[in-house]
Design a protein around this nucleic acid. Structure first.
Length: 490
RNA sequence: GGCGCCGUCGCCAAGUGGCUAAGGCAGCGGAUUGCAAAUCCGCCAUCGGGGGUUCGAAUCCCCCCGGCGCCUCCA
């Protein structure tokens, strides 16, 4: 059984899809006015792990992630750049998909763009007007009438009567009947430049929330299973989505609402003014890998504020090394044999296998799942030291790791980071040969000199009973190692 | 002012009423190694502070201290 914490009920609810075997999932995506930052990716990794867990549990998943390509920020950005809205947002859409790959995030089935669904939004707004849930104001904008929807505030647990207007209430929204009413359609104004669509209410553009309602219903139906986003989306975005969708259809929109907590940097909110604002690209440029960042962003439970630090990121590298070393060791013991998932696990792995499943199915407890992973590694190493792991057992554990990795996606090194045979580079191969000869002749001074030389060239060599092994050294530059010193090998 | 979250070993982080408080990183001692590396063995926290409930609390309640978030377009 899979339990998921549902913001709607504020409990961990047993998950059961509407339609057996298939899960319809809507995940709030990026506003493409900028390159996404670490906080955004914390949420997308959470959603990826949710998706992967559902698949792990045997469900087929239909996931929709919207791309918000029209709003105040995208319009402002396009005008500032002097290019069309489409051209402006396209570059960030491209960057977004590249970043998803870097982080091993599985693609969704659909990535609808808001600008491609304006007619759907107009149709939905018309439906709301017909049902008296929306009205055209004097400024030719259309607003949702909150007073017509008594359940408003149910998700965020907000008491409407106590709602105080925040500082960001636009001054120009005087046309609304009620300050809490929100825009479904915004009449064109000069700040919009040439961004506008025709509608029954004149030229204008959609409000923020309506795109998600229109697009989730188009791709997933009027009621679907899971809707996710960052914790900050609970109000107003998701609250408004529920109001306008359910007022239009009379049916519940999504049955499970999951929200991911924020990320902080060194205990502080990530912000440009504090100088701790990082995009994924910034971190990659320092020499860290997507795999490492993914591991770190999934290392805390998704409903817990995650403290991102460079110390922690360095620690990840060592942890991943431990995983890699263990898997290599298992492969050696397995000696090339592979087994199916049905093959019985050795006793020592059955225990942690159960722990892993329990953890991941308990509201996606990735931190505890990592615990099970490392307990397996410890026990496996211990038994392999004693020569008490058969080839078949090693293969079975490798198969289990592969299965776990369908959820975690952190086990395998990047293709360009895998151990390379030194023979591929004649210089390196030559040095290895020289070192081998020196060691055979007990000339350890010379062998140590070559080892240092290799390290300077970016390779770490270690001696094993099977001979020399070469690993690529991993160089990063961040505030803790600005000298570009060599950290652990990848 | 309203609503909500959090404070667990040097760092990251599980655990939310009852086995000796997971796990990773770092550190210390030992085994192993020509030296390293890897691995193993051992060591390394009583849970922000105070009070209360309970046979029993890191886990529930109250107060205080500290940090974070939402309150109309921010994941």
């Amino acid at each position: 059984m899979l339990n998921l914490y549902n913001t709607l009920t504020r409990r961990r609810d047993a998950f059961e899809p509407l339609e057996p075997g298939i899960v319809k999932l809507y995940t709030c995506g990026p506003t493409v006015y900028n390159v996404a930052h670490l906080g955004n990716f914390r949420a997308y990794i959470f959603e990826d792990i949710l998706r992967r867990t559902l698949e792990y549990r045997g469900y087929r998943v239909v996931q929709v992630m919207n791309l918000t390509d029209v709003d105040d920020k995208t319009i402002r950005g396009a005008i500032a750049a002097g290019i069309s809205l489409d051209a402006f947002t396209q570059q960030f859409k491209d960057a977004f998909f590249e970043d998803l790959k870097t982080l091993r995030i599985k693609p969704a089935e659909h990535y609808p763009a808001a600008t491609a669904h304006i007619p759907d939004m107009i149709a939905l707004i018309e439906r709301l007007i017909e049902r008296n849930h929306a009205y055209v104001a004097d400024d030719d904008s259309v607003y949702f009438n909150i007073a017509s929807y008594p359940a408003y505030g149910r998700l965020a647990r907000l008491d409407l009567s106590s709602l105080q207007p925040g500082t960001r209430v636009a001054h120009d929204e005087y046309a609304k009947d009620n300050v809490a009413d929100f825009a479904l359609w915004k009449a064109w104004d000069a700040d919009d430049g040439d961004v506008a669509w025709d509608s029954p209410w004149g030229r204008g553009r959609p409000g923020w929330h309506i795109e998600c309602s229109a697009m989730c219903m188009r791709y997933l139906g009027e009621t679907f299973d899971i809707h996710t986003g960052g914790i900050d989306n609970i109000f107003p975005h998701h609250e408004d989505e529920i109001a306008q969708s359910e007022a239009a259809t009379g049916k519940p929109l999504a049955r499970y609402w999951l929200h991911c907590a924020h990320l902080i940097i060194d205990g502080q909110k990530m912000s440009k003014s504090l100088g701790n604002f990082h995009t994924l690209r910034d971190i990659v440029a320092m020499g860290f890998r997507g795999r490492e960042i993914r591991y770190l962003l999934a290392s805390a439970h998704y409903r817990q504020t995650l403290n991102f630090t460079f110390d922690a990121l360095h620690a990840v590298r060592s942890a991943l090394d431990r995983i890699d070393t263990f898997r290599q060791r298992l492969q050696q013991v397995a000696g090339g044999i592979t087994v199916s998932q049905e093959t019985a696990l050795p006793d020592w792995a059955q225990n942690t296998a159960a722990k892993f499943d329990q953890a991941i199915c308990d509201d996606l407890n990735t931190a505890a799942a990592y615990g099970a992973l490392f307990e397996t590694i410890h026990e496996g190493n211990r038994l392999m030291d004693g020569g008490r792991v058969s080839d078949r057992d090693a293969a079975a554990v490798l198969t289990m790791f592969d299965r776990w990795d369908r959820v975690l996606a952190i086990m395998t090194p990047d293709a360009d980071a895998t151990t390379v045979n030194g023979a591929e580079d004649p210089v390196i191969a030559g040095l290895l040969e020289q070192r081998q000869a020196a060691r055979q002749g007990k000339n350890f001074k010379e062998s140590d000199r070559i080892r240092d030389l290799l390290r300077d060239k970016g390779w770490i060599v270690r001696d094993t009973p099977a001979g020399q092994e070469l690993k690529r050294a991993h160089i990063t530059s961040d505030r803790h190692s600005l000298d570009g010193s060599i950290a652990c090998a990848q």
